[in-house]
Design a protein around this nucleic acid. Sequence first.
DNA 1: TAGATTGTTAATCGATTAACAATC
DNA 2: TAGATTGTTAATCGATTAACAATC
Lengths: 214, 214
Amino acid sequence: MKKDAKISNAVIKRLPRYRRYLKELQKKGVDKISSNEFSSLIGYTASQIRQDLNNFGGFGQQGYGYNVDGLYNEISAILGLDREYKMIIAGAGNLGQAIANHTHYYKTGFVVCGIFDVNPRLIGLKINDIEVMDYENIESYVKQNQVNIGIICTTKDNAQEVADKLCHAGIQGIWNFAPVDLSVPAHVAVENVHLSDSLQSLAYHMNQQADLEK
Amino acid sequence: MKKDAKISNAVIKRLPRYRRYLKELQKKGVDKISSNEFSSLIGYTASQIRQDLNNFGGFGQQGYGYNVDGLYNEISAILGLDREYKMIIAGAGNLGQAIANHTHYYKTGFVVCGIFDVNPRLIGLKINDIEVMDYENIESYVKQNQVNIGIICTTKDNAQEVADKLCHAGIQGIWNFAPVDLSVPAHVAVENVHLSDSLQSLAYHMNQQADLEK
DNA sequence: TAGATTGTTAATCGATTAACAATC
DNA sequence: TAGATTGTTAATCGATTAACAATC
Protein backbone atom coordinates (compact mmCIF):
# COMPACT_ATOMS: atom_id res chain seq x y z
CA MET A 1 0.00 0.00 0.00
CA LYS A 2 1.34 3.39 -1.05
CA LYS A 3 1.44 5.82 1.78
CA ASP A 4 3.00 8.96 0.38
CA ALA A 5 0.34 11.25 -1.06
CA LYS A 6 -2.60 12.39 0.98
CA ILE A 7 -5.75 10.73 -0.25
CA SER A 8 -8.73 13.02 -0.68
CA ASN A 9 -11.68 12.56 1.59
CA ALA A 10 -13.98 12.07 -1.40
CA VAL A 11 -12.11 8.85 -2.14
CA ILE A 12 -12.22 7.64 1.47
CA LYS A 13 -15.96 8.24 1.66
CA ARG A 14 -16.43 5.90 -1.30
CA LEU A 15 -14.42 3.02 0.18
CA PRO A 16 -17.13 1.71 2.54
CA ARG A 17 -19.49 1.58 -0.40
CA TYR A 18 -17.03 -0.39 -2.54
CA ARG A 19 -16.68 -2.73 0.39
CA ARG A 20 -20.43 -3.23 0.75
CA TYR A 21 -20.82 -4.14 -2.90
CA LEU A 22 -17.85 -6.46 -2.79
CA LYS A 23 -19.43 -8.22 0.20
CA GLU A 24 -22.60 -8.77 -1.84
CA LEU A 25 -20.56 -10.15 -4.71
CA GLN A 26 -18.80 -12.51 -2.33
CA LYS A 27 -22.16 -13.75 -1.08
CA LYS A 28 -23.24 -14.42 -4.65
CA GLY A 29 -20.06 -16.41 -5.21
CA VAL A 30 -18.65 -14.00 -7.79
CA ASP A 31 -14.88 -14.24 -7.70
CA LYS A 32 -13.74 -11.60 -10.18
CA ILE A 33 -15.06 -8.32 -11.51
CA SER A 34 -13.86 -5.79 -14.08
CA SER A 35 -14.06 -2.07 -13.46
CA ASN A 36 -16.75 -1.91 -16.16
CA GLU A 37 -18.95 -4.54 -14.56
CA PHE A 38 -18.40 -2.96 -11.16
CA SER A 39 -19.31 0.41 -12.62
CA SER A 40 -22.75 -0.67 -13.80
CA LEU A 41 -23.35 -2.26 -10.41
CA ILE A 42 -22.19 0.49 -8.08
CA GLY A 43 -22.87 3.54 -10.24
CA TYR A 44 -19.42 5.11 -10.27
CA THR A 45 -17.59 5.35 -13.61
CA ALA A 46 -15.12 2.58 -14.43
CA SER A 47 -12.50 5.28 -14.67
CA GLN A 48 -13.22 6.51 -11.18
CA ILE A 49 -13.10 3.00 -9.76
CA ARG A 50 -9.67 2.35 -11.26
CA GLN A 51 -8.48 5.81 -10.24
CA ASP A 52 -9.72 5.34 -6.67
CA LEU A 53 -8.19 1.92 -6.20
CA ASN A 54 -4.89 2.99 -7.67
CA ASN A 55 -4.45 5.50 -4.91
CA PHE A 56 -3.59 2.55 -2.72
CA GLY A 57 -1.86 0.21 -5.12
CA GLY A 58 -2.45 -2.00 -8.13
CA PHE A 59 -5.06 -4.42 -6.91
CA GLY A 60 -6.18 -5.52 -10.36
CA GLN A 61 -4.67 -7.54 -13.15
CA GLN A 62 -4.68 -6.44 -16.77
CA GLY A 63 -6.90 -8.50 -18.99
CA TYR A 64 -8.58 -10.08 -15.97
CA GLY A 65 -10.05 -7.53 -13.60
CA TYR A 66 -10.16 -7.50 -9.83
CA ASN A 67 -10.33 -10.48 -7.51
CA VAL A 68 -13.39 -9.93 -5.31
CA ASP A 69 -12.05 -11.54 -2.14
CA GLY A 70 -8.69 -9.89 -2.51
CA LEU A 71 -10.10 -6.44 -3.11
CA TYR A 72 -12.52 -6.79 -0.21
CA ASN A 73 -9.65 -7.59 2.11
CA GLU A 74 -7.49 -4.77 0.78
CA ILE A 75 -10.23 -2.18 1.28
CA SER A 76 -10.97 -3.53 4.74
CA ALA A 77 -7.29 -3.14 5.61
CA ILE A 78 -7.13 0.38 4.18
CA LEU A 79 -10.09 1.44 6.30
CA GLY A 80 -8.47 -0.13 9.35
CA LEU A 81 -11.10 -2.82 9.79
CA ASP A 82 -8.52 -5.48 10.52
CA ARG A 83 -8.27 -4.46 14.13
CA GLU A 84 -10.59 -3.90 17.06
CA TYR A 85 -11.86 -0.56 18.37
CA LYS A 86 -13.06 0.03 21.90
CA MET A 87 -15.84 2.57 22.08
CA ILE A 88 -17.76 4.32 24.83
CA ILE A 89 -21.00 6.25 24.53
CA ALA A 90 -21.49 9.59 26.27
CA GLY A 91 -25.20 10.13 26.90
CA ALA A 92 -27.64 7.29 27.62
CA GLY A 93 -30.68 8.94 26.03
CA ASN A 94 -32.64 7.49 23.13
CA LEU A 95 -29.87 7.82 20.63
CA GLY A 96 -27.17 6.54 22.97
CA GLN A 97 -29.29 3.54 23.86
CA ALA A 98 -30.13 2.83 20.24
CA ILE A 99 -26.45 2.78 19.34
CA ALA A 100 -25.67 0.55 22.30
CA ASN A 101 -28.32 -1.87 21.09
CA HIS A 102 -27.14 -1.77 17.51
CA THR A 103 -24.92 -4.84 17.70
CA HIS A 104 -24.29 -4.48 14.00
CA TYR A 105 -20.92 -2.82 14.56
CA TYR A 106 -19.44 -5.76 16.43
CA LYS A 107 -19.08 -7.64 13.20
CA THR A 108 -16.54 -5.13 11.97
CA GLY A 109 -14.64 -4.88 15.24
CA PHE A 110 -16.32 -1.89 16.90
CA VAL A 111 -17.11 -2.85 20.48
CA VAL A 112 -19.08 -0.65 22.84
CA CYS A 113 -17.69 -1.25 26.31
CA GLY A 114 -19.43 1.41 28.36
CA ILE A 115 -22.09 4.11 28.48
CA PHE A 116 -21.86 7.25 30.57
CA ASP A 117 -24.57 9.55 31.84
CA VAL A 118 -25.16 12.06 34.60
CA ASN A 119 -28.69 10.83 35.36
CA PRO A 120 -28.58 8.78 38.60
CA ARG A 121 -31.65 6.82 37.54
CA LEU A 122 -29.80 5.44 34.54
CA ILE A 123 -26.47 4.75 36.24
CA GLY A 124 -26.12 1.06 37.03
CA LEU A 125 -28.57 -0.07 34.35
CA LYS A 126 -27.42 -2.46 31.69
CA ILE A 127 -28.26 -1.82 28.05
CA ASN A 128 -27.53 -4.74 25.80
CA ASP A 129 -25.21 -6.01 28.55
CA ILE A 130 -23.29 -2.74 28.61
CA GLU A 131 -23.21 -0.93 31.93
CA VAL A 132 -24.32 2.66 32.29
CA MET A 133 -21.72 4.40 34.44
CA ASP A 134 -21.42 7.76 36.12
CA TYR A 135 -20.26 10.50 33.77
CA GLU A 136 -17.90 11.61 36.55
CA ASN A 137 -15.71 8.62 35.79
CA ILE A 138 -15.59 8.88 32.02
CA GLU A 139 -12.06 10.26 31.87
CA SER A 140 -10.47 7.67 34.15
CA TYR A 141 -12.37 4.89 32.37
CA VAL A 142 -11.09 5.96 28.96
CA LYS A 143 -7.53 6.12 30.26
CA GLN A 144 -7.59 2.84 32.13
CA ASN A 145 -9.30 0.85 29.40
CA GLN A 146 -7.51 2.45 26.47
CA VAL A 147 -10.77 3.35 24.77
CA ASN A 148 -10.26 4.35 21.13
CA ILE A 149 -13.52 6.02 20.15
CA GLY A 150 -15.95 8.24 22.04
CA ILE A 151 -19.50 8.46 20.75
CA ILE A 152 -21.16 11.73 21.69
CA CYS A 153 -24.92 11.39 22.14
CA THR A 154 -25.45 14.31 24.48
CA THR A 155 -27.29 17.55 23.85
CA LYS A 156 -25.50 20.15 21.76
CA ASP A 157 -24.80 22.24 24.85
CA ASN A 158 -22.80 19.50 26.56
CA ALA A 159 -21.04 18.09 23.52
CA GLN A 160 -17.95 20.30 23.55
CA GLU A 161 -17.32 19.71 27.25
CA VAL A 162 -17.55 15.96 26.71
CA ALA A 163 -15.22 16.22 23.73
CA ASP A 164 -12.69 18.13 25.83
CA LYS A 165 -12.78 15.46 28.53
CA LEU A 166 -12.40 12.66 26.01
CA CYS A 167 -9.49 14.34 24.26
CA HIS A 168 -7.80 14.99 27.55
CA ALA A 169 -8.16 11.31 28.39
CA GLY A 170 -6.37 10.39 25.17
CA ILE A 171 -9.22 9.37 22.87
CA GLN A 172 -8.24 8.87 19.22
CA GLY A 173 -11.57 9.41 17.51
CA ILE A 174 -14.95 10.99 18.16
CA TRP A 175 -18.19 9.97 16.49
CA ASN A 176 -20.34 13.01 17.07
CA PHE A 177 -24.13 12.88 16.95
CA ALA A 178 -24.67 16.24 18.61
CA PRO A 179 -25.66 19.05 16.24
CA VAL A 180 -22.54 21.13 16.82
CA ASP A 181 -19.09 21.34 15.30
CA LEU A 182 -16.53 20.26 17.86
CA SER A 183 -13.10 21.74 18.24
CA VAL A 184 -10.49 19.15 19.10
CA PRO A 185 -6.68 18.78 18.88
CA ALA A 186 -5.38 17.96 15.40
CA HIS A 187 -4.47 14.39 16.30
CA VAL A 188 -8.07 13.50 17.18
CA ALA A 189 -10.29 12.39 14.30
CA VAL A 190 -13.89 13.55 14.29
CA GLU A 191 -16.73 12.16 12.22
CA ASN A 192 -20.04 13.98 12.44
CA VAL A 193 -23.50 12.51 12.01
CA HIS A 194 -25.69 15.55 11.84
CA LEU A 195 -29.13 13.97 11.61
CA SER A 196 -31.14 17.15 11.45
CA ASP A 197 -28.85 18.60 8.78
CA SER A 198 -29.46 15.45 6.80
CA LEU A 199 -33.23 15.72 7.20
CA GLN A 200 -33.15 19.34 6.12
CA SER A 201 -31.30 18.58 2.95
CA LEU A 202 -33.90 15.89 2.25
CA ALA A 203 -36.60 18.53 2.64
CA TYR A 204 -34.82 20.79 0.16
CA HIS A 205 -34.59 18.06 -2.46
CA MET A 206 -38.23 17.09 -1.96
CA ASN A 207 -39.31 20.61 -2.72
CA GLN A 208 -37.05 20.76 -5.77
CA GLN A 209 -38.64 17.59 -7.14
CA ALA A 210 -42.08 19.10 -6.53
CA ASP A 211 -41.04 22.27 -8.42
CA LEU A 212 -39.87 20.26 -11.41
CA GLU A 213 -43.27 18.68 -11.80
CA LYS A 214 -44.93 22.04 -12.33
CA MET B 1 -35.31 33.74 -4.76
CA LYS B 2 -33.71 32.79 -8.09
CA LYS B 3 -34.86 29.45 -9.38
CA ASP B 4 -33.20 29.03 -12.75
CA ALA B 5 -29.81 27.33 -12.37
CA LYS B 6 -29.44 24.04 -10.59
CA ILE B 7 -27.68 24.53 -7.29
CA SER B 8 -24.92 22.05 -6.54
CA ASN B 9 -25.42 19.63 -3.71
CA ALA B 10 -22.24 20.87 -2.03
CA VAL B 11 -23.97 24.21 -1.49
CA ILE B 12 -27.18 22.62 -0.19
CA LYS B 13 -25.25 20.53 2.31
CA ARG B 14 -23.79 23.72 3.78
CA LEU B 15 -27.12 25.48 4.25
CA PRO B 16 -28.18 23.66 7.45
CA ARG B 17 -24.85 24.60 8.97
CA TYR B 18 -25.26 28.26 8.07
CA ARG B 19 -28.67 28.04 9.65
CA ARG B 20 -27.33 26.52 12.87
CA TYR B 21 -24.76 29.25 13.27
CA LEU B 22 -27.29 31.96 12.51
CA LYS B 23 -29.54 30.50 15.22
CA GLU B 24 -26.70 30.78 17.71
CA LEU B 25 -26.09 34.37 16.68
CA GLN B 26 -29.78 35.13 17.14
CA LYS B 27 -29.62 33.68 20.65
CA LYS B 28 -26.68 35.91 21.44
CA GLY B 29 -28.65 38.90 20.22
CA VAL B 30 -26.34 39.62 17.29
CA ASP B 31 -28.35 41.34 14.59
CA LYS B 32 -25.89 41.71 11.73
CA ILE B 33 -22.82 39.91 10.48
CA SER B 34 -20.35 40.43 7.64
CA SER B 35 -19.12 37.58 5.50
CA ASN B 36 -15.71 38.04 7.10
CA GLU B 37 -16.98 37.76 10.65
CA PHE B 38 -19.15 34.82 9.65
CA SER B 39 -16.14 33.19 8.03
CA SER B 40 -14.05 33.18 11.19
CA LEU B 41 -17.01 31.76 13.09
CA ILE B 42 -18.16 29.02 10.75
CA GLY B 43 -14.89 28.13 9.07
CA TYR B 44 -15.85 28.65 5.43
CA THR B 45 -14.08 31.41 3.47
CA ALA B 46 -15.87 34.74 3.24
CA SER B 47 -15.80 34.31 -0.50
CA GLN B 48 -17.56 30.98 -0.29
CA ILE B 49 -20.21 32.37 2.02
CA ARG B 50 -21.02 35.23 -0.38
CA GLN B 51 -20.90 32.89 -3.34
CA ASP B 52 -23.21 30.36 -1.66
CA LEU B 53 -25.78 32.91 -0.58
CA ASN B 54 -25.81 34.59 -3.97
CA ASN B 55 -27.04 31.40 -5.55
CA PHE B 56 -30.39 32.27 -4.05
CA GLY B 57 -30.42 36.03 -4.16
CA GLY B 58 -28.81 39.12 -2.71
CA PHE B 59 -29.50 38.77 0.97
CA GLY B 60 -26.82 41.19 2.08
CA GLN B 61 -26.28 44.89 1.88
CA GLN B 62 -23.07 46.51 0.71
CA GLY B 63 -21.20 48.30 3.43
CA TYR B 64 -23.33 46.66 6.10
CA GLY B 65 -23.33 42.88 5.90
CA TYR B 66 -26.14 40.41 6.43
CA ASN B 67 -29.09 40.77 8.75
CA VAL B 68 -29.03 37.72 11.02
CA ASP B 69 -32.79 37.29 11.42
CA GLY B 70 -33.44 37.92 7.75
CA LEU B 71 -30.80 35.48 6.57
CA TYR B 72 -31.97 32.82 9.00
CA ASN B 73 -35.49 33.08 7.61
CA GLU B 74 -34.31 33.06 4.00
CA ILE B 75 -32.24 29.91 4.51
CA SER B 76 -35.09 28.24 6.37
CA ALA B 77 -37.37 29.00 3.43
CA ILE B 78 -34.84 27.75 0.88
CA LEU B 79 -34.57 24.45 2.75
CA GLY B 80 -38.35 24.23 2.90
CA LEU B 81 -38.57 24.53 6.66
CA ASP B 82 -41.52 26.88 6.48
CA ARG B 83 -43.98 24.02 6.09
CA GLU B 84 -44.83 20.79 7.89
CA TYR B 85 -43.75 17.28 6.89
CA LYS B 86 -45.59 14.14 7.86
CA MET B 87 -43.29 11.20 8.39
CA ILE B 88 -43.72 7.51 9.09
CA ILE B 89 -41.08 5.07 10.27
CA ALA B 90 -40.73 1.62 8.75
CA GLY B 91 -39.18 -0.73 11.31
CA ALA B 92 -39.76 -0.41 15.06
CA GLY B 93 -36.39 -1.78 16.11
CA ASN B 94 -33.83 0.15 18.17
CA LEU B 95 -33.15 2.73 15.54
CA GLY B 96 -36.79 3.22 14.59
CA GLN B 97 -37.72 3.66 18.22
CA ALA B 98 -34.86 6.06 18.84
CA ILE B 99 -35.99 8.25 15.97
CA ALA B 100 -39.58 8.12 17.18
CA ASN B 101 -38.41 9.29 20.58
CA HIS B 102 -36.21 12.03 19.19
CA THR B 103 -38.76 14.81 19.45
CA HIS B 104 -36.09 17.21 18.29
CA TYR B 105 -37.44 17.25 14.72
CA TYR B 106 -40.85 18.58 15.72
CA LYS B 107 -39.38 21.99 16.22
CA THR B 108 -38.59 22.28 12.54
CA GLY B 109 -41.90 20.85 11.35
CA PHE B 110 -41.06 17.17 10.94
CA VAL B 111 -43.81 15.16 12.60
CA VAL B 112 -43.70 11.39 13.00
CA CYS B 113 -47.28 10.16 12.77
CA GLY B 114 -46.85 6.40 12.65
CA ILE B 115 -44.47 3.47 12.98
CA PHE B 116 -44.84 0.21 11.07
CA ASP B 117 -43.50 -3.23 11.82
CA VAL B 118 -44.24 -6.86 11.03
CA ASN B 119 -43.64 -8.07 14.59
CA PRO B 120 -47.05 -8.76 16.23
CA ARG B 121 -45.58 -8.17 19.68
CA LEU B 122 -44.78 -4.57 18.75
CA ILE B 123 -48.00 -3.77 16.88
CA GLY B 124 -50.36 -1.76 19.06
CA LEU B 125 -47.62 -0.39 21.29
CA LYS B 126 -47.16 3.33 21.62
CA ILE B 127 -43.72 4.88 21.38
CA ASN B 128 -43.61 8.50 22.40
CA ASP B 129 -47.38 8.57 21.79
CA ILE B 130 -46.96 7.25 18.26
CA GLU B 131 -48.75 4.02 17.46
CA VAL B 132 -46.92 1.01 16.06
CA MET B 133 -49.09 -0.36 13.25
CA ASP B 134 -49.08 -3.46 11.10
CA TYR B 135 -46.67 -3.22 8.18
CA GLU B 136 -49.44 -4.70 6.02
CA ASN B 137 -51.21 -1.35 6.15
CA ILE B 138 -48.28 0.94 5.41
CA GLU B 139 -49.28 1.67 1.84
CA SER B 140 -52.90 2.56 2.55
CA TYR B 141 -51.84 4.66 5.55
CA VAL B 142 -49.40 6.70 3.47
CA LYS B 143 -52.03 7.30 0.83
CA GLN B 144 -54.84 8.18 3.19
CA ASN B 145 -52.79 10.45 5.40
CA GLN B 146 -50.74 12.07 2.67
CA VAL B 147 -47.49 11.19 4.37
CA ASN B 148 -44.51 13.07 2.89
CA ILE B 149 -41.48 11.22 4.19
CA GLY B 150 -40.78 7.55 4.86
CA ILE B 151 -37.98 6.71 7.26
CA ILE B 152 -36.49 3.29 6.57
CA CYS B 153 -35.15 1.61 9.69
CA THR B 154 -35.41 -1.99 8.55
CA THR B 155 -32.63 -4.45 7.81
CA LYS B 156 -30.81 -4.02 4.54
CA ASP B 157 -32.59 -7.03 3.06
CA ASN B 158 -36.04 -5.50 3.50
CA ALA B 159 -35.21 -1.91 2.67
CA GLN B 160 -35.76 -2.00 -1.09
CA GLU B 161 -39.14 -3.71 -0.74
CA VAL B 162 -40.24 -1.06 1.75
CA ALA B 163 -39.00 1.67 -0.56
CA ASP B 164 -40.99 0.21 -3.44
CA LYS B 165 -44.15 0.16 -1.34
CA LEU B 166 -43.63 3.72 -0.16
CA CYS B 167 -42.98 5.02 -3.67
CA HIS B 168 -46.03 3.22 -4.95
CA ALA B 169 -48.07 4.90 -2.24
CA GLY B 170 -46.88 8.31 -3.40
CA ILE B 171 -44.20 9.20 -0.87
CA GLN B 172 -42.09 12.25 -1.76
CA GLY B 173 -38.95 11.57 0.24
CA ILE B 174 -37.12 8.70 1.87
CA TRP B 175 -34.73 9.00 4.77
CA ASN B 176 -32.80 5.76 4.54
CA PHE B 177 -30.93 4.30 7.51
CA ALA B 178 -30.48 0.84 6.00
CA PRO B 179 -26.99 0.14 4.65
CA VAL B 180 -28.05 -0.23 1.02
CA ASP B 181 -28.48 2.10 -1.92
CA LEU B 182 -32.14 2.26 -2.86
CA SER B 183 -33.45 2.56 -6.37
CA VAL B 184 -36.49 4.78 -6.59
CA PRO B 185 -38.31 6.80 -9.28
CA ALA B 186 -36.66 10.10 -10.20
CA HIS B 187 -39.33 12.21 -8.51
CA VAL B 188 -38.63 10.67 -5.09
CA ALA B 189 -35.83 12.26 -3.06
CA VAL B 190 -33.57 9.97 -1.04
CA GLU B 191 -31.23 10.95 1.74
CA ASN B 192 -29.01 8.23 3.14
CA VAL B 193 -27.63 7.96 6.64
CA HIS B 194 -25.14 5.15 6.36
CA LEU B 195 -23.96 4.85 9.94
CA SER B 196 -21.51 2.03 9.42
CA ASP B 197 -19.97 3.81 6.43
CA SER B 198 -19.51 6.81 8.66
CA LEU B 199 -17.88 4.77 11.40
CA GLN B 200 -15.54 3.16 8.90
CA SER B 201 -14.36 6.46 7.58
CA LEU B 202 -13.71 7.52 11.18
CA ALA B 203 -11.57 4.40 11.59
CA TYR B 204 -9.58 5.33 8.50
CA HIS B 205 -8.86 8.83 9.73
CA MET B 206 -7.88 7.56 13.19
CA ASN B 207 -5.27 5.32 11.66
CA GLN B 208 -3.99 8.14 9.47
CA GLN B 209 -3.53 10.35 12.52
CA ALA B 210 -1.68 7.53 14.24
CA ASP B 211 0.62 7.15 11.22
CA LEU B 212 1.47 10.84 11.22
CA GLU B 213 2.74 10.62 14.75
CA LYS B 214 5.39 8.09 13.77
C1' DT C 1 -0.41 -14.64 -29.78
C1' DA C 2 -4.78 -11.87 -29.55
C1' DG C 3 -8.07 -9.95 -26.54
C1' DA C 4 -9.21 -7.87 -22.49
C1' DT C 5 -8.63 -4.83 -19.01
C1' DT C 6 -5.76 -2.47 -15.92
C1' DG C 7 -2.67 1.50 -14.51
C1' DT C 8 -1.70 6.04 -15.54
C1' DT C 9 -1.35 10.33 -18.02
C1' DA C 10 -3.89 14.04 -20.16
C1' DA C 11 -8.27 16.66 -20.78
C1' DT C 12 -12.35 18.27 -18.87
C1' DC C 13 -15.36 19.68 -15.66
C1' DG C 14 -16.94 21.76 -11.43
C1' DA C 15 -16.16 23.92 -7.12
C1' DT C 16 -13.50 27.10 -4.40
C1' DT C 17 -10.90 31.23 -3.85
C1' DA C 18 -9.28 35.78 -5.21
C1' DA C 19 -10.07 40.22 -6.95
C1' DC C 20 -12.51 44.23 -7.65
C1' DA C 21 -16.24 47.11 -9.35
C1' DA C 22 -20.85 48.29 -7.64
C1' DT C 23 -23.32 50.32 -4.02
C1' DC C 24 -25.17 50.97 0.47
C1' DT D 1 -18.93 61.87 1.02
C1' DA D 2 -15.74 58.09 2.61
C1' DG D 3 -15.55 53.53 4.30
C1' DA D 4 -17.14 49.13 4.34
C1' DT D 5 -18.77 45.19 2.41
C1' DT D 6 -21.47 42.96 -0.86
C1' DG D 7 -22.33 40.83 -5.57
C1' DT D 8 -20.07 39.01 -9.33
C1' DT D 9 -16.49 37.98 -12.62
C1' DA D 10 -12.04 35.89 -13.32
C1' DA D 11 -8.33 32.72 -11.71
C1' DT D 12 -7.10 28.71 -9.39
C1' DC D 13 -7.45 24.47 -7.59
C1' DG D 14 -9.03 19.79 -7.21
C1' DA D 15 -11.74 16.00 -8.63
C1' DT D 16 -13.74 13.36 -12.34
C1' DT D 17 -13.65 11.51 -16.89
C1' DA D 18 -11.44 10.15 -21.19
C1' DA D 19 -7.84 8.05 -23.61
C1' DC D 20 -4.41 4.90 -24.40
C1' DA D 21 -0.09 2.53 -23.63
C1' DA D 22 1.35 -1.31 -20.67
C1' DT D 23 0.68 -6.00 -19.67
C1' DC D 24 -1.58 -10.08 -18.10
